[in-house]
Design a protein around this nucleic acid. Structure first.
Lengths: 140, 140
DNA sequence: ATCGATGCAAAGGTTTTGCATCAAT
DNA sequence: ATTGATGCAAAACCTTTGCATCGAT
């Protein structure tokens, strides 16, 4: 077991989950991913490594990891949910509507303003996510 | 035809769509809605008025109206898409995770900051939406 | 040995689509 | 009359679930 998978294993145990090959695999796929794969893509990548992984397990694993706070589910418009390892800071996503490329963006100031606004309404933020659909500026 | 439906009719024609009973009905339902109904709820409400409206038409109509810029599709997490008439100003949604209540929130300052941020990346915002899952403050 | 996790297949819920008919232009 | 819109039913699509088996503890 590599140092990397040892870390994963500890995180899983800390969340009260059994350390299975499948979970290590899914976590590792998401940690290595440069993009934001959906369940089907995670499944395909997992299959390349272990031909016996099932669809059901991928879905169950993704839900379990989400509930354990290890990964985050992203709900984009009109497409299956995508996943990413839990980010350290709240960040949002910009989708290039022409290429489909996803860019992560962060603004502490916006986060602060939002928290204030929500607090004024008598609420506490549990989670938040901004989806921006944008197009490259032609004159950029 | 009431003044209200005349307005709808003009909006439809301006969008290059035929003015059908079904479209007027769906638009009218969304304009009167105090909530953010999903396709199924729109269908049910339409059925109460016209027993012949079909599911397929509701979905096709919602997509057509969205493309025409008359209504907006809201993608919440893990639930079917909801719809609202196109708002004059960009606004976001706060979902009370305990009651399911949806509250509309707006902040010109946040919108401005976001536009700036996106522009700096060389993009123009096509649409944007923030979903905040929140819980009432116990000590509010 | 226990009991949670898995794989398979089948079902569930939401949305789309093919096609004949209808109705707005 | 033309052609887009509708209704119906069937399919597609994404996700969840029942159940027998497997494997982590």
């Amino acid at each position: 077991m590599t140092a990397e998978t040892t870390d994963f294993a500890e995180a899983l145990r800390a969340a009260g989950l059994r350390v299975t090959q499948q979970r290590l695999r899914v976590l590792s796929i998401l940690m290595q991913a440069q993009d934001h794969p959906n369940a089907d893509e995670v499944f395909t990548r997992a299959r390349e490594i272990d031909g016996s992984v099932s669809f059901a397990t991928v879905y169950r694993t993704l839900s379990a990891l989400e509930e354990a706070g290890l990964i985050q589910r992203l709900s984009f418009e009109n497409e299956p949910a995508r996943f990413e390892v839990m980010p350290s800071a709240d960040h949002d996503h910009l989708v290039d509507i022409d290429t489909g490329e996803v860019i992560e963006i962060t603004s502490d100031e916006i986060n602060r303003l939002r928290a204030e606004l929500v607090a004024r309404l008598g609420y506490e933020i549990v989670s938040q996510h901004t989806l921006i659909r944008a197009r490259r500026k032609p004159d950029a």
